[in-house]
């Protein structure tokens, strides 16, 4: 199972929105994944196969060694789907 972390500053808004969309997208694609929303502070030191975050969080994610997908438009399912599926394909 793929482990995906969605990130935002507090873990209530943006990361939750990303999780809700990704749950739907990955279910449609038949991909089994665990998706956890995190706030930036708590995520430090955690592991995930893939991190999905808003584009302006890039600077905060430089120390994360795993794969990161950055989303410009967080309500655009097409952008989220294309970027995340492309990243998962490389796994």
């Amino acid at each position: 199972m793929v482990h995906i972390a969605t990130l935002c500053g507090m873990g209530f808004g943006t990361s939750m929105m990303l999780k809700l969309f990704l749950d739907e997208i990955l279910k449609q694609e038949g991909i089994s994944a665990r998706i956890d929303p995190w706030d930036l502070g708590s995520f430090k030191g955690q592991q995930a196969d893939l991190v999905v975050a808003p584009i302006d969080m890039e600077d905060h994610l430089r120390s994360f060694e795993g794969k990161v997908v950055l989303i410009k438009n967080l309500v655009d399912k097409k952008e989220i789907k294309e970027k995340v599926l492309a990243a998962l394909k490389d796994e």
Binding site: C8, G9, G13, T14, M17, L40, A53, P54, I55, D56, M57, D59, H60, N73, L74, V75, D76
Partner: peptide, 14 residues
């Protein structure tokens, strides 16, 4: 503290 990442889409902030 964390920057304007809450501007979630063109023209929209949450």
């Amino acid at each position: 503290d964390m920057g304007p990442y809450m501007v979630i889409a063109p023209g929209i902030v949450l």
